[in-house]
Each structure stands twice: as structure tokens, then as C-alpha cells.
Simulated scan of single mutants.
Amino acid sequence: MPPISSLIKFGKKEIYLPKFIITLLHTPQLPPTHAKFLVPLNFNKLDLRDYLYHVYNVKSMNIRTYIQQQKVQQDRPGVKAPQPRRWFRPRAIKKMTVEMDKPFVWPEQPENMDAWSKEAHNAMTKTQQRQDTPEAQRDDHNEMAEALSRQAKDLLAGKSKWKPTWVDYGDEVEVERDVRI
């Protein structure tokens, strides 16, 4: 009997510029010949198999799919006026586990993170998380209002001169009013 890799036809569906995101998950409990991915809900096993083959030249022997439903929440997150007894279920997550023909081993964690500027990444992540809060949005609104107030006071006091921001198209031309169409 021929090996299973010769029975499976690889590369039928070519993918050039994908419009989707596939995430490889770090799963130390799986053997090295298995990899777990987060994929879009409309993705199927053949799409993932052909994607891995064309992009990374990885042949997948077996693919298992699991759709994980999210917990039901009361009202949508981030709503300004939450309403009681309005239920919302976040979008489901689709995971695929792939059995590959060659093992994949995650590289060791580097001890020195200077080359990856980990401090800058952590600071940026912290800033982004802070900007997503309603308090930060309110602070940004207050800062903008203060800047506009200072600018208006400077204009009224004569410290700065007002400049138009639109494009000057030349002199105005009067148009005839009695035109019949």
C-alpha cells in the first residue's frame, strides 16, 4: 500500500493574496508533528491544507476542526447605556489541529530581549489598552477642548493670526441668474 502522502492531492487551490488571518497557537501539550491554528469561521480543512502547502511547503496529513462557542454575556461590551436582560453571544472561535508530515519544534525563548525591544512593545500594549477605556477617551476629549480654547484665546488676544485651511481657487466670479435650462 502506498504511503498516505502520495494518496492526498496537495495544492489544488492556490492562494495568492489572502484576506484572512491565521494564527499559530503555542501548544506544548501536542506532539511536534501537530500544530493548532485559529482560523476564520468560513475556513474549511481543504483551505488550510492548501494554504499551508503553498505558503510554507508543509504537507498536512490529517486536520481536525473545533468550533468553540463563547459564553453568553449581558448586553454588548462597551455600550454606553447597558440594558438589563439583553443577552449577547460573542462570535465563535474556530480552531484547527493539523497533523504534519515533518515535526515542528518551537524555538527556545531568548534570554536577552534587547533585539526585539520588548520594553517598547510592552509600553505600546499598555498605552493601547489604556486608550480603549472610556476614561481615556474622555481625557482625550478634554485635552482637545483645552487646546481649542487656548487657540481661540490666542486669536482673540492677537497673539496669532488666523489662516484659512482651504485651498484658494482665485477671485470669485459672479454667475448669471437668469439661465434657463
Score class of each variant (00 low, 15 high):
Pro2Arg: 08
Pro3Val: 15
Ser5Asn: 12
Ser6Trp: 13
Ile8Met: 01
Ile8Val: 12
Ile8Pro: 00
Gly11Phe: 10
Lys19Trp: 12
Phe20Ala: 12
Phe20Arg: 08
Ile21Tyr: 07
Ile22Ser: 11
Ile22Ala: 07
Thr23Val: 15
Leu25Cys: 05
Leu25Ala: 09
Leu25Thr: 15
Thr27Ser: 09
Thr27Pro: 10
Thr27Trp: 10
Pro28Trp: 04
Pro32Cys: 04
Thr33Tyr: 10
His34Glu: 00
Lys36Leu: 01
Lys36Cys: 00
Pro40Val: 01
Leu41Thr: 04
Leu41Lys: 11
Leu46Glu: 14
Asp47Cys: 02
Tyr53Trp: 02
Val58Cys: 08
Val58Arg: 12
Ser60Asn: 02
Asn62Glu: 08
Tyr66Cys: 06
Gln70Pro: 09
Gln73Gly: 09
Asp75Tyr: 05
Pro77Trp: 09
Pro82Ala: 05
Pro84Thr: 00
Arg85Ser: 14
Arg86Trp: 07
Phe88Lys: 02
Phe88Asp: 08
Arg89Gly: 06
Pro90Ser: 06
Ala92Ile: 00
Met96Pro: 04
Thr97Val: 05
Thr97Arg: 11
Val98Tyr: 00
Glu99Tyr: 10
Met100Gln: 05
Pro103Arg: 12
Val105Ser: 07
Glu108Ala: 11
Glu108Gly: 10
Glu108Ser: 15
Gln109Ile: 15
Asn112Met: 10
Met113Pro: 02
Met113Thr: 07
Asp114Ile: 15
Ala115Asn: 03
Ala115Arg: 01
Trp116Pro: 05
Ser117Trp: 03
His121Ile: 14
Asn122Lys: 09
Ala123Met: 05
Ala123Gln: 01
Ala123Lys: 02
Met124Arg: 15
Met124Cys: 07
Met124Phe: 04
Thr127Lys: 10
Gln128Phe: 13
Pro134Cys: 09
Glu135Asn: 13
Ala136Leu: 05
Gln137Val: 09
Gln137Ser: 07
Arg138Cys: 14
Asp139Pro: 09
His141Lys: 08
Asn142Arg: 04
Ala145Trp: 07
Ala145Cys: 12
Glu146Thr: 13
Ala147Glu: 13
Leu148Pro: 07
Leu148Glu: 03
Arg150Asp: 11
Gln151Asn: 11
Leu155Ala: 13
Leu156Met: 02
Leu156Cys: 12
Gly158Tyr: 02
Lys159Glu: 03
Lys163Gly: 00
Thr165Gly: 10
Thr165Ser: 01
Gly170Leu: 00
Asp171Ile: 04
Asp171Asn: 04
Glu172Tyr: 08
Glu174Ser: 03
Val175Gly: 10
Val175Tyr: 15
Arg177Pro: 00
Val179Asp: 06
